[in-house]
Each structure stands twice: as structure tokens, then as C-alpha cells.
Design a protein around this nucleic acid. Sequence first.
DNA 1: CACTAAATCTAGAACGTTCTAGGAGAGACT
DNA 2: AGTCTCTCCTAGAACGTTCTAGATTTAGTG
Lengths: 329, 329
Amino acid sequence: MPTPPAKRPTLADVARASGVSVALASIVMRGAEGASEESRSRVKQAAAELGYRPDSRARSLRSSRSRTIGLALALGEPLHAELADALYEQADQNGFEIILGATGRHRDERRVLNTLIDAGVEAVIGLFPELPPAQLVHASKQLPIISLLRTIDGIPSVITNEAAGVEQAVSHVAQLGHTRLLHLDGGSAIAAQQRRDAFAESAARANAHGQVLPAGPDDATAFTVLREYLEATTPAERATAVLAFNDRAALGARQAIDLAGLHVPEQICLVGYDDSEFARLAHADLTSVRQDVAALAQAAMHAALNAPGASSTHAPQLVVRGSTARPRA
Amino acid sequence: MPTPPAKRPTLADVARASGVSVALASIVMRGAEGASEESRSRVKQAAAELGYRPDSRARSLRSSRSRTIGLALALGEPLHAELADALYEQADQNGFEIILGATGRHRDERRVLNTLIDAGVEAVIGLFPELPPAQLVHASKQLPIISLLRTIDGIPSVITNEAAGVEQAVSHVAQLGHTRLLHLDGGSAIAAQQRRDAFAESAARANAHGQVLPAGPDDATAFTVLREYLEATTPAERATAVLAFNDRAALGARQAIDLAGLHVPEQICLVGYDDSEFARLAHADLTSVRQDVAALAQAAMHAALNAPGASSTHAPQLVVRGSTARPRA
DNA sequence: CACTAAATCTAGAACGTTCTAGGAGAGACT
DNA sequence: AGTCTCTCCTAGAACGTTCTAGATTTAGTG
């Protein structure tokens, strides 16, 4: 069966059916003041009967109030999914809709940003790992743009206090008695630089020896890098605690550790980052740094809707699980 | 700094700057015929200088050709992410944009569908696990709706041949010599019913004993259910091959197997479904049934754009990895 | 009852595009 | 010259809303 496109009812249809003007029907539909109770109920009933739903294109074209905000994220990132879920909840409370754009292999970030803007959103909340800041600053002259998880000069940014997160992780393992620490970094990923710097500082502060191994945000790179490290070092010189850039990388690291015949956490312990589903998953039971998703979402939505220009930083919280313990005597 | 919204350039601005009418500028911008080469380049240059981008709301309002299609999916599902990526590629080739709507804890599927429709998409491709068919059928009177991975009467559906996938998995382990098979099913998840039925048939056909254990599409349920099974059975009566509903569930199953002190694949072997990133992840090395993402995406896009009403079924492919082997003698 | 204030309603322009219908010029052919 | 057929261009309506400004009704007051 070919699809015969049935025309959807318009505001004019509703007005005609309820015997009022289009303007009044509009007033009723958007809940503005200036209509009597009687016409209100008449119009609403007609709308319900016809199955009328306002056309958000026309609405936003005319009023520049689409009550829609755009969210750019990477699919397949558990943390992004969590944030999106929390943002949906926030949007609900404010009577807003959310439209998503996915960055990924086949869609560069600028394009995603433009698609969202062209679709008529009132603001964009973006998880843009790589988009040049200049582009965001430029776009922010047209509408509010909030950068989530990444600090961008000139753009309100809602981020986690990376230094605090790394510090919690480092001091946790240091207090357990570990003195040789390894950080598998995130390469050029978002926040990788801050975590790298924070790691060096925190290790020094804890009187531990901290080494950074260049890696990346994925499990494959972490696996390869750590395997080489384990092959190239003797047990005596080896680090006894590994801080991965994120949970995914931690799983890759875990694979390398298992392959080398070492036991977690007795011989080497492992800390992830993000406390995503990976951390709780099979085998892993990862100690991980949890970002405050709810607070991040709330702050981002608030910045997008009410307080343009309000950056904020949110404290993470270390979640201790089974992948960290005292070093074996 | 509050954000001073700078007005974005309109087609009228472009027309004025290049000394032609709005209508002609429109012709040039959308690449229609009826403009001389000279004015074409003049308009294009003016547009570039002003940084003009067409307003897709106005465009789609007027022409009902927004060149945008809506995609509804669940965030955090690796398979959905893969499909989205492939669909983006398809959309690119057809000069279409994609906007996403996420179903999830805080956003029911009907709402997502409506948001996409109201945003003016020309068609919707939907991964709707639970939406009542009637709603989709109703919406499909307004615009083409394609159901992906789920058969829905009255709606063109692009799906995987579940029976074939399960058959490949079952006959693989049967040929390895396993005769007691267990299926951790997907509960009420999409395609769960088909896989359940196919499992029973395939097991019978292979002269194997097939038992179905009610579970769900997540790793936690699979873990719990399998742990109880392993505790309640003796090694002699136990199944030696487990087919999980998907890779995520397989990881949960894996956790239960490890906890019971059993070895994969020597003592018990494990097959996943979807061949998602989970299957390749740390520890897992899962044999899994790969859905043909590229073909599914292409068929869905084709159905959405060109051939309303064209359902299709696509063959999956078993990917053999390290989690399956001959039973120990 | 006249006059004003408030409440309720409506006509019509506007948002930024596309599309229809037609006009102006330039050759080409009787 | 006239007529035809092209190609190139443009005016203005239309899409479905919101919004401004004013019209009409109702209620309130002396």
C-alpha cells in the first residue's frame, strides 16, 4: 500500500469547527490570556476531536519560541546517554522539547550544530569534543550555546571539576598504600589534558611516583598500550595502580592485565572514570569517578533557558568498588 | 555576558545584496533550473559572504520538502548507534538531514514520534520497541513511517531474519557437539518472541535439547537468572551452551558463569547477538550473530524516501569468536 | 442612562521560504 | 513586420502560526 498522505488539521480547521477566529483559537492553544472559559473549552474540545497538534515549524517561524532545544552528542557514549536522559527530564519540567543531533564518524560536529540551529531550536546544549571554539563562539551570536563537559572560552560551559575527580582517585589508591601510579591518558579527547595535569599534581602531592602513558578514550588503544607496558617492565618497577581515562579504556586495560596473568585488585588495581554502565558490567566491578549527571544536566538546562552566560563546575564523586585494594604485602 | 541575538541573514538579504529578486535567489539556493550562470554565481557569492543558510522551518513549511528525516532510537543501545551511523551515511548520499529523537526512561515513544513529526520531518524511521502498532499506523497516514527491527502490521518494516540468525547460532554449537542448549530470552523486548520460537525449532531440528529461561535484554537480569540456574542444576544435567538474547545479556551471563567457577568456552560456551562493541570488548571475545547494519540502513532509507510500503528482511551472519568451542570430552 | 474600564474577540500583517503565473527580451522562422 | 519559442527573471500568494492593534461586548460607576 502506498502511503496516501492525509492532511493534518490546522488551526483554521479548529477555529472553523468551534466557530471562533483563528486568532482566538491560537490564544487558547498556547494558553495565553484573553479568552473566556467558555470559548476555551469549546476550542479545546474541537482540537481534541480533530486530533489537532500545533505545527512547530510555523509556530517557531513566527514567534521564535519553538520551545525546543537542541542537544548534540555522540551516540554510543554511555555518559552522553545518561546526560541526555537527565536533560530530557529537565526539559519536561520546563515544558521544552529536545531534538538530538549525533556527532560521529559520518557527521562532523559543525554540520550537526547547523542542522540543529536550522531546525529552529531556541538553544543548543552541545557535547562537542572537537569543534573549533571559534565556530561555537560565532554561532552563539545567534542563539545561546552551552558547552557541556568541555570548557570553551566565550561560551558558557558546564563542566566537572576534573582536578577534584582525579585527586579523589589518586588519594584513594595512595591511601591504600600504592606508591607507583600509572595514568592511561585520553589522548586528544575532551578533558584529557586536565586529567593528565591533575594526575601529575595529585601524584606529587601524595608523594607517589606518577607516570603518564599516552593512550586514548577507547578500549582498544588502552589494551595495546598497557600490554606493551606490562611486557616492557619488570614486576618490581611496575606500577601497582592504573588510572584509566574512562571506564571503556579501563575495560581494555583490564583485558591486558588479565592477559599478562595478573590479578585485579591484588596485584594491580584499576580505576575508571565516569561510572558508566561499563563500570558495573560483567567482570569489571570498577572503582570509578562518577560525574554528577543530574547536576550537570540541571545546570546546562538552566544556562540554556534562563541565565545566558552562566558557566558552572560540578564536583564528581569517587565510587569505590572491587577493582581497588591494598597492594599485596 | 548576556547573549545578544544577532539576526541571521535571510533570503531577502541575499537578494538585495546581489541585486536580484527573492524568487530568483530562491531558485539559485535550491539549485532549481531557470537562472543564468551569471546570476547563479553572483547570488552564491553574496550568500557566502553573508553567511546565509536557508531556514529549514520556513522551507519545509512552504514546500513540505524539508529534506529531513526523523530517526527514533534508544540511547545507549550499541546496535542503535551503529544503525544511526549507517543511516547518516545513507542520508548524506541522498542529500537529507537526520534529526534524532531518543526514547528512554523519561520520554515515551509516542511523544518522541510526535516531536519528530511536529518538527517537520518528511518521514520517520523508528526503532520503537513498545509503541502500540495502532499509533504508528495512525501516524503513517500523515507521512511515511518505517519500523526498523520490528515487524508491525500495516507499516513497512525492515527487519533481520531472526529465524536464520538463531538457526546459525544453534547449528554452530550443535555441530561443535553440544546437545543441551539454553536460551536466555529477551522477555518482552523487540524480536524476543521470534528468537524464542526460532530457538525451539532450531534445537529440535538439530536433535538437541533446548530450554528457554525467561530473562530480559539487560545484563543484570541475565546475570541473576543464569546464576540461579547454575545453582539449581548439577553439572550433569546442565546445558553446555548458552545463547543470550543479545551481547549485553551475554556479558551478564558471562559474569554468572565466572562466578560459578566455570570456564568459557571449555566447560560452557556462550553466544551473543548483535555483534555490538560488547562482543569485542574486554574478556568477552563473544561469538555473536551480526545483523547486517549497512543493508538494514540502506533498505530503511530507501523505503522512507522512494518506495513507501516496501518491507524487507535481511540475513544476519554468525561471527565466530573465542566463546564457543567443542565440549570437553 | 451615559460614560468608562475591563474583558473578550477578530482582522490582517508578519515570519522566511517556495511556487504559480506570467512578463520582458532575444533570436528564429514565416 | 509579425509571431513563436526560448531563456531568464519577478510579483505576489501561500504554508500555519503568532502578534499587534483595534473592534466589540460586558460590567461598573456615578
